[in-house]
């Protein structure tokens, strides 16, 4: 249903009251005196967080959820960062407090994970440190600190258990963010010595080579995927680099 139809439904004179919360809206729908649109508008945020004017109530509601996926948390942090630059001091304070709440949540999680066993908590710890570093995008010193911490965590884990391919999903992004591309490449080459035809390792290598501006190497790796399997997305990327038609999306 389009937004305008929902809005008109809500304006229908049969619906004399408007629920204030999603629970009340649900009860109203059950009782038959509110339309379904009432829950959609109260219970679910149907706008992007970036859309202005920012809905502070929605930001607050999302902030109260303790287990949001990282992508949502990052967007929330980015929006709060923008709000801190608002000329309205109260709004700026709201942004700063919200950002602080998100950061404190991560810091507490990191501290709790640090107390755990390295073999079980290292990966979640490194993941939390990476996520916090990405939230600190506009504060380079803090970002560098948490990236270094995360890299050290993975290194300590590898010292204990040996290098594992599944950690590349953390290892490579950490180095890409930190700008230590040579280190990332060196690790990937070592992995390739052990598993020469591994598509996942080559994919990460393509990312590193792209960041290093070595585009011929990127093409070579994409060509490798043409011969040794690889997802349709990688085949599309190969055709894109060759300047060919992208085909069906």
């Amino acid at each position: 249903m389009s937004y305008s139809k929902e809005y008109l439904q809500l304006l229908d004179s049969r619906y004399l009251v408007m629920a204030r919360t999603q629970k009340a809206a649900l009860k109203g729908i059950e009782g038959g005196f509110l339309p379904e649109a009432a829950f959609i508008t109260k219970g679910i945020n149907v706008r992007s967080l970036f859309e202005e004017p920012y809905e502070l109530i929605e930001l607050d509601r999302l902030l109260s959820k303790p287990d949001m996926p990282f992508e949502v948390t990052l967007r929330l942090a980015q929006v709060c960062e923008r709000i801190t630059r608002n000329p309205d001091k109260e709004l700026a304070l709201f942004g700063a407090e919200s950002l602080n709440a998100l950061e404190v949540r991560y810091v507490q999680r990191i501290q709790k994970l640090k107390k755990g066993e390295l073999s079980t908590s290292a990966r979640p710890l490194a993941q939390a440190q990476l996520e916090l570093a990405l939230i600190y995008e506009t504060r380079p010193a803090l970002k560098r600190f948490y990236l270094t911490e995360a890299i050290n965590t993975i290194q300590n884990l590898w010292a204990l258990e040996g290098r594992q391919k599944k950690d590349l999903a953390l290892w490579v992004p950490l180095h890409l963010e930190a700008g230590s591309l040579e280190e990332a490449e060196r690790s990937l080459r070592e992995f390739l010595l052990e598993m020469p035809q591994d598509s996942e390792v080559y994919f990460w290598l393509a990312k590193v080579k792209f960041a290093q501006r070595d585009y011929l190497e990127v093409m070579t790796i994409l060509a490798f995927f043409q011969e040794h399997g690889g997802s349709s997305e990688l085949h599309k990327a190969y055709r894109f680099w060759l300047g060919e038609d992208p085909g069906v999306a």
């Binding site: 679910i44 149907v46 706008r47 992007s48 970036f50 859309e51 929605e58 949001m68 992508e71 949502v72």
Partner: peptide, 18 residues
């Protein structure tokens, strides 16, 4: 499902309204 839908909607950055 609602939660995932909401998370996708709020996190989207390439919408026409934006």
């Amino acid at each position: 499902v609602n939660r995932v839908l909401e998370e996708r909607l709020v996190a989207q950055i390439d919408s026409i309204t934006l």
